[in-house]
């Protein structure tokens, strides 16, 4: 059951968040999962309390701070210092702390044995995504895209072998860092079918702002179909142009960094391209996967994503690049 936080929170969103309210593919206040819903509820509760307390303190400060004659009153001193300054905050804070501690263990616990396990490795500056089988062996690898079945817990296993990144899908739940030398875990329970966006939340170098990814929460049946499709090798090119594109891929040495399963390309440095044409975005930078964008990307990736480690292939000539882009676009 998804929790939106009630009409009051929607009104509050419109008030402070502009016409669009709190909605959004990347909004923590538009939950699509249990964890995000829990935190959104916590946020609205605390915000309401905080605003009341803020108004009270400021009103007291304003009222007593305006010019007036001397008015000593030990009784009021006691009320203000002991009552408002000590007893009230201790009471509120104790209650809040207990509430926060009470909700903490479920949020940090692991998914039950046998849950879907997805390994995500932070790279500079993209996401290597591996779906694992029950033994922990990889079923399939892809990049910058995660699809999940709705209504089932998913266990993320997070790591990095370069710098620190942080894995964050605001609509589904809180973030978790990816730290070299450590493995961290994040459990999420998506509750709503839909497309969400994620981002790296820990500053990780030049293209940190371009390290995003897409999340698609699907019906379990659709998910199973998609996963089976991802496990297939790459489709054979059918047109002369796409066939030329495949040859370019081989000739230009793309396989040194990229894998296209079913071809000789088996590089491990860059993203797996076996089904790149079916992805929701390109380059972890929210780019479209159409042929035109792929063409620009291959010619001069730095223009689309500053700092990217992939070199520019402008020197291959525009015909080759166009063919390559056409081939990649059809790798669905």
């Amino acid at each position: 059951m998804r929790v939106q936080g009630g009409a009051a929170s929607v009104a509050a969103c419109v008030l402070i968040g502009g016409a669009a309210g709190c909605a959004g593919v990347q909004s923590a206040l538009d939950p699509g999962g249990d964890e995000a819903a829990t935190v959104a509820r916590l946020f609205w509760t605390m915000t309401a309390g905080a605003l009341v307390i803020w108004a009270g303190v400021v009103a007291l400060g304003w009222y007593y701070g305006r010019p007036h004659e001397e008015a000593p009153s030990p009784r009021r001193d006691r009320w203000l210092i002991l009552g408002s300054g000590v007893v009230f905050p201790v009471t509120v804070l104790t209650a809040l702390l207990a509430y926060g501690l009470w909700m903490l263990p479920p949020l940090v616990s692991r998914a039950p044995e046998g849950s879907l396990t997805v390994e995500v490795v932070g790279e500079q500056w993209w996401w290597r995504v591996r779906y694992l089988d029950a033994t922990g062996a990889p079923l399939v690898e892809l990049a910058n895209e995660i699809r999940l079945p709705v209504g089932e817990p998913v266990q993320f296993r997070l790591s990095s072998d370069n710098v620190i990144h942080s894995f964050w899908i605001p609509s589904l739940g809180g973030k978790m860092d990816m730290i070299p030398g450590r493995t961290t875990y994040l459990t999420l329970h998506p509750t709503r079918v839909g497309t969400f966006a994620g981002a790296c939340a820990e500053y990780c170098g030049t293209a940190h702002g371009y390290m995003r990814f897409m999340v698609d929460v699907m019906d379990p049946a659709a998910f199973d179909g998609w996963l089976a499709g991802q496990r297939q090798v790459a489709v054979e090119p059918q047109t002369p142009e796409t066939q030329r594109g495949r040859d370019v891929l081989r000739r230009a040495g793309c396989g040194a960094c990229h894998t296209v399963r079913g071809t000789s390309a088996d590089g491990l440095i860059g993203p797996d391209l076996t089904h790149v044409g079916s992805r929701m975005s390109l380059g972890a930078a929210g780019l479209s996967t159409d042929a035109a964008t792929l063409e620009r990307w291959v010619s001069a990736p730095e223009r689309l994503k500053p700092g990217v480690h992939m070199p520019a292939f402008q020197m291959m000539g525009s015909d080759d690049i166009r063919a390559l882009a056409a081939y990649l676009e059809r790798l669905e």
Partner: peptide
Amino acid sequence: EAVAIPTSVQIFCFIATLAAGRVV
């Protein structure tokens, strides 16, 4: 959470001082 307590105490000391004094 605990560190918020002393902060609140001092704010209310200031407010109490203003309340009792002849504010200009």
